[in-house]
């Protein structure tokens, strides 16, 4: 019983880490540019196909593919910002949101046209054989996903905290006008934010595609990650991470204690409950309404 429960928590945490990475992508872009990028899930899908192409068609080594995928995904993020978002930056926020939804549909369909809609297995370096460690029951795959996600999160934290660019990005998130007055090139920061968000999406893609298979509809995982971001408090970076992880664990446990139907809606039930008690999410500040 204990062994099974711990294995549920560990594998849930692995999925949750991937949700957390995608949620992080949502939040970074939102904080810096006030845009909710609904094509975030599509970065995950696209990077899955990029790494599939590099691994299978070009037969490159795995570590190179991993780095190249993150870089290419980042470039894709910049391209999306420059081509789709920047030209309409002054338009109402709803127009921008719809534009990102449009972009996501275009990306999904392009993947379908290029690769077909069949599911593909994406190879991974992590073994899926079981490992026993006390009461812990897990696979190298789970450990690899959790480890890689944590490394990315720590690197990001250090980047924001210690580098000049990171500080400039935080400043831009606080106040674009003030940042501009301090000599920060806000346009460059926007591009960089999109590159980092898409790059994180790329990591998520390389990690999750071997687990849940690769197909053009993979990007819908973004919807769950979005729920995770809201659960944690949309706009809060620790919130996105904790929200995503919680969601992964909760899904597994609800599936175990109840059935597949409850598992499917458990995310949203929890989301509603949390928002009723704390409208700002777990880590978010409660919204202040001035009358």
């Amino acid at each position: 019983m204990v062994e099974i429960l711990t294995s549920q928590v560990v594998s849930g945490l692995a999925t949750g880490c991937v949700y957390a990475l995608i949620a992080l992508g949502f939040v970074l872009i939102f904080k810096a540019t006030d845009v909710v990028n609904f094509a975030q899930g599509e970065f995950v899908m696209a990077s899955g196909f990029i790494s599939y192409t590099l691994l299978i068609r070009f037969e490159l080594p795995y570590w190179l593919v991993f780095l190249a995928t993150i870089a290419l995904s980042g470039i894709m993020g910049v391209a999306l910002e420059r081509v789709v978002v920047r030209p309409i930056m002054t338009a109402p926020i709803f127009s921008i949101v719809i534009a990102t939804i449009g972009a996501s549909i275009v990306m999904r369909s392009s993947a379908g046209i290029l690769y077909g809609y069949d599911v593909l297995p994406l190879p991974t370096i992590f073994s899926k054989d079981p490992i026993h460690w006390g009461v812990l029951n897990f696979t190298l795959m789970d450990a690899g996903v959790i480890g890689s996600s944590l490394v990315i999160m720590v690197v990001l934290y250090l980047f924001f905290k210690l580098t000049k660019t990171g500080t400039a990005m935080r400043a831009t998130a606080q106040s674009q006008t003030a940042a501009r007055l301090m000599g920060v090139s806000v346009g460059r920061i926007f591009s960089l934010t999109w590159a980092i968000s898409a790059g994180i999406g790329g990591v998520a893609g390389v990690l999750i595609a071997p687990i849940i298979y690769l197909d053009p509809n993979l990007g819908f995982i973004g919807v769950k990650a979005f729920a995770g971001a809201i659960l944690g408090g949309f706009g809060s970076i620790p919130g996105a991470i904790v929200g995503g992880m919680l969601l992964g664990i909760l899904e597994n446990l609800s599936g175990y204690f109840f059935n597949a139907g409850i598992k499917q809606v458990s995310t949203y039930i929890l989301l509603i409950l949390v928002l009723v008690v704390r409208p700002g999410g777990l880590f978010g500040a409660a919204p202040i309404r001035r009358v």
Binding site: Q8, G12, N252, G255, Y256, A260
Partner: peptide, 11 residues
Amino acid sequence: DYKRADIDFSS
């Protein structure tokens, strides 16, 4: 049971 299009069956 599982739902159509589900892909995680750890539970």
